[in-house]
Amino acid sequence: MKVVATYNIKGGVGKTATAVNLAYEATRAGNRVLLWDLDPQCAATFFFRIKPTVKGGAKRLIESNGSLAAHIRATDHLGLDLVPADFSMRNLDLHLDTRKRPTRRITTLLEPLADQYDIAILDCPPGITLTSESVFAACDALLVPTVPTTLSMRTLDQLISFLADADRPLVLPFVSMIDRRKKLQRDFLAEIFERVPAHLPTVIASTSVIERMGIERAPVAVFAPRSQSALAYRELWADVARRLWA
């Protein structure tokens, strides 16, 4: 099982939209997918219409000696399951801190599921925290949605330098939420591709279709399968799959 995380130090860059849509596209491509919502905002859980409940809260989730199995919920899409979040996930760091090897915890929880799924996608909260450290240790690749702005570029640089060690996951940034009407963003786009060669080629534009996910409570391809955004997420998954199984 490959493990990828949608992650950025910054919030509001499209992490959850990416996790939800990529999970769906990965499933369409014939993979068995587990999406784990680690964000106390529970947006990924909301998009799949699943109740935001973690039985026993984040404490039990982290401290249990079993795996995540008991927490898994089927979504409406065959092959795509979800570990929901609830508001108790805001204390994930505190609970991790009580463990002996906190940064290994997510790896340990995923290990028993390795034969059941082809890919696990972790939807992470923003910030560099103990949770992020545990995610870095567990995953094969970090998908980093990057909005083409100065601050976003700065946090990407910070992340790349933080993860410079050889045993860290593959960092796969991609441009997210671009507004092509803005010249400044178009200029940044060229700069990003030049500065970060590992950048995935697909660009996700900011569209009203993606915003509608909140109303439809489903991945874009379910309610707007022929939209530009649905096609973009399919391409983005193809980019990721090529890197994961190259």
Binding site: T27, R28, A29, G30, N31, R32, L78, G79, D118, I119, A241, W245
Partner: peptide
Amino acid sequence: AVLLVAAAPSVTDQLPAGPF
């Protein structure tokens, strides 16, 4: 796992590369 294909394969090489 579910995979949309153009036609049912007669050999595994006809499936797209990937875990399936």
